[in-house]
Simulated scan of single mutants.
Amino acid sequence: MLKSSTYLRRPISLHYIDDDILEFYYQAKGKGTKYLSELKENDILNIQGPLGNGFDTSIKNKKILITAGGMGIAPIKLLIEKLYENDSNNYITLIAGGADENAVKIIKRFDTSSIDLYITTDDGSVGDKCSTVDKTKELLKEKEIDIIYTCGPAAMMNALIKVSEKYNILCYASLEERMACGVNACLGCSIEIKDKKQGSILKKVCYDGPVFDSKVLNI
């Protein structure tokens, strides 16, 4: 087992489950994820979870748009499978975007046979040369959508939330925040959300989220 120089855990989305195998998709950026990338078979890794509240997969017979950018693509593979497992009548459109071809190559591991797939890249190396937000706006002019699920950079999700408000579409966003404890014990991932009675209150992304109804988010 490698000895990590980090103290805090790293919050990472669950990419996929296959029997007793858990898959994680992440980018090695700092000390913590670099350590994870150097683990070998039979090394021991202490995992805490699952934690918080994810996307609602109990919906039935809905037209769903999933817009994911960058590392926000990570939880989408499992999300699509669970939405179809619950109801095969759910109609899913996926927009996956990134900076370039390498940022979206993980989509090749998805089962996209039953969904409408659109790829966008900033440099146009694959798919359409535009942002996921621009592609969402384009599709909403053509398609009837009941629910939007989104995960990715904050700027992307904030823009999508405004689009969902314009079209009066229910939108759920999976927030990316630094987390320390993961169990509602500290204030590391606190965000301010709208509350009908109190105006605004603090919620913890690790415990109350990471997925929130966009209507309660202050953007």
Rank of each mutant, 00 (worst) to 15 (best):
G72C: 10
I44Y: 07
I59C: 04
D43Q: 13
T57R: 01
L78A: 10
N61C: 01
G49W: 02
E41M: 14
D56L: 09
G70R: 09
G70K: 02
I76D: 11
G69T: 13
I44C: 03
E41K: 15
L45K: 14
I66W: 07
S58M: 10
K77G: 05
S58Y: 14
P50N: 10
A74L: 08
I80S: 08
L65F: 03
A74S: 14
L45T: 09
T67I: 13
E38P: 12
G49Y: 03
M71E: 08
N53I: 15
G54H: 10
L78V: 04
K77V: 04
K77T: 02
G69I: 03
N42G: 06
N42P: 02
K40S: 15
K62T: 00
M71W: 11
K60W: 07
L51G: 06
G69R: 09
P75S: 04
A68P: 01
T67A: 12
P50H: 12
K77Q: 08
A68N: 03
T67L: 02
I44V: 06
N61M: 02
G70C: 06
K60R: 04
I66K: 04
G70H: 05
I76Y: 00
P50G: 13
S58G: 12
A74Q: 02
I64T: 06
N42S: 11
D56R: 11
N46I: 15
I76W: 00
G70A: 09
G69Y: 10
L79R: 01
I73W: 00
K60G: 04
G72P: 06
N42H: 12
I73R: 00
K62I: 01
I44M: 12
L65E: 05
N53L: 15
N53V: 15
L79H: 01
I59K: 09
I76R: 04
S58P: 06
F55C: 11
D43F: 09
I66S: 02
I47R: 08
G54F: 13
S37R: 05
E41G: 11
I64A: 05
I59F: 07
N42L: 11
M71F: 07
K62L: 00
K63E: 12
P75M: 01
S58A: 10
K77E: 06
L65H: 05
I47K: 13
T67H: 03
G72S: 11
G49I: 10
D56G: 05
T57N: 10
E38W: 12
Q48M: 11
G52I: 07
K77M: 09
G72T: 03
I76P: 01
E38L: 14
E41S: 15
G52M: 03
I59T: 12
P50F: 07
L51N: 14
